[in-house]
Write a protein that binds this DNA or RNA. Structure first.
Lengths: 286, 286
DNA sequence: TTCAAATCTGAAATTTGTTTTCAATATTGA
DNA sequence: TCAATATTGAAAACAAATTTCAGATTTGAA
């Protein structure tokens, strides 16, 4: 299948003026005709519908809709071949993107960041975290602000895994609880920057009472993860501020998801069955 | 970007008989319609042209020729790729995957589902939702259970956009509030299955009081989205039950993220500046 | 179970878009 | 220069897509 656009290019030079207008327009906007009627196309190119038909004939296609199909085949099979360097997302809501493009770019952006996660999230660390959680009977959750969202979700997950979960949204209460950690408990702290004063105070309390601490922060040095026995980390997006996106939230949920599965993987068959029972109950119809 | 056929597959089961005939025919002969008129296609599938139009509408494409274009895009972009059958994720925690592989598969799985979202999430609908929210002064949030997580996140987003947000976790209170919707308010209901009795009751209350309702559910028929003025939809994963993954949560957050950006896109410069101020304040160091 | 409301269906009418026709105009080559 | 040939676009004819509508069916509420 020789390229259709190439074919147009090749005959373009010896086309009569009016047909050439159309050919030129198509060569410059190969995907545009897909969304135009013949009349629109001819108007846009400064010609008339009859000419479009004649051009189709000359190109040996079966009519205008066949023309469109050949064109779309061309356009879409090339799509994504020479991806441009993606400075996308810099300030995407200012860039006048259509909502469709916004969605597409956003999907790309998120997928790309998920891929990055593969190199940042260390399997051994996930395993270690799963191990600790698996052994613990009770999990104490630490965090506030936007981390609450993730913690609530984690609360569901852990409950489903059969853990007792202690989670109060008030950080001061969290701190109080952190001082009374016992052997069968583990604390799980979430904070993107790892620099929340109060959360860190709770983490210190956990260490002082000799308890285990798992943390989930962005990659790099920070006070929270320094205190941790197991440090889960997600990439720092950098764009977060400007875009206002909650990519961070998605990555955090993703990590807790993986962790959930990892814990499940360590369980016995009966334990897994129990998890399924809890799950079926908790889902019902929400 | 393989997803238009996936979309058809997803809704196929709950299509009315006559539309299903056509969907089935297309699924079995994905490239056939490209060379057929609507009448031919409907005849081949044992249905009528009007039904084809209706199916196009349901698929959120712009008419039969748009349908053809989407299809050709699918057919031709896949040509010669030899996708392997991907039975991944069926029961991945039973399959003895190493944690590294678990992460890798999970990333693939999530990315793939994000791609599916592209054909399920209709830009026009997102636009409509953004429009409604932009005009409203106050947003009332509806939902419970695992949707709480998303609603809390949404609460942050909306607050940052300068909206008054009314969100009580107690559904009964939500219902009560729903009866007193005023003109400058809009309700936003989230429920994966769209079949939560109490949430639906709140939604009905919204409609009875003449208010606007935006919903976020899985794709397909359900009582909640039926009541909606604007229906946002995410793909049904199917695996959700067995895997216990919270993919749904990720997709939901994703949608609200896109919506956030879409609303932002509709704002004036001063309004955007105000949003940034709120954002910088709200993030600080959590 | 019964009834009202909502949804589905396909034939027919309508609208929209494509293709052909044709007369006027321009171009070519002897 | 002047036939022969090719190009053009307006309008007519045609074809296909879309909407409408009224009857049939299904669904949901009481």
């Amino acid at each position: 299948m020789q390229s259709f656009l190439t074919l147009i290019e090749q005959i373009e030079k010896e086309l009569p003026a009016s047909e050439r207008k159309i050919a030129d327009y198509v060569l410059q906007n190969p995907s545009a005709p897909l969304f135009m009627t013949m009349t629109e196309l001819s108007a846009a190119a400064g010609s008339s519908p009859a000419i479009v038909v004649r051009l189709c004939k000359r190109l040996n296609v079966d009519g205008y809709s066949d023309f469109k199909i050949r064109l779309s085949r061309e356009v879409f099979s090339n799509e994504g071949k020479d991806e441009e360097p993606e400075q996308v997302m810099e300030n995407f809501y200012d860039s006048g993107l259509s909502t469709r493009d916004l969605i597409v770019q956003y999907i790309k952006f998120t997928s790309k960041n998920l891929s990055n996660l593969e190199s940042v999230l260390d399997p051994k660390t996930v395993d270690a975290a799963a191990e600790v959680i698996n052994k613990a009977k009770t999990v104490l959750l630490l965090g506030q602000g936007s981390a609450e969202v993730i913690l609530s979700d984690l609360q569901y997950k852990l409950a489903r895994l059969g853990k007792n979960v202690i989670y109060s949204k008030d950080v001061n209460l969290q701190i109080a609880q952190s001082y009374s950690l016992t052997d069968d408990m583990v604390a799980f702290g979430i904070s993107y920057f790892g620099e929340d004063q109060l959360v860190n105070q709770a983490a210190k309390a956990v260490k002082e009472s000799g308890g285990k601490l798992i943390t989930l922060t962005k990659i790099g040095h920070n006070h929270l993860s320094r205190l941790a026995d197991v440090k889960l980390q997600i990439p720092a997006s950098g764009y977060e501020f400007r875009t206002g996106s909650t990519l961070t939230r998605i990555l955090q949920i993703f990590v807790t998801d993986v962790l959930y599965s990892a814990v499940l993987g360590k369980m016995t068959e009966e334990e897994k069955t129990a998890v399924l029972r809890r799950w079926n109950f908790s889902v019902t119809h929400s």
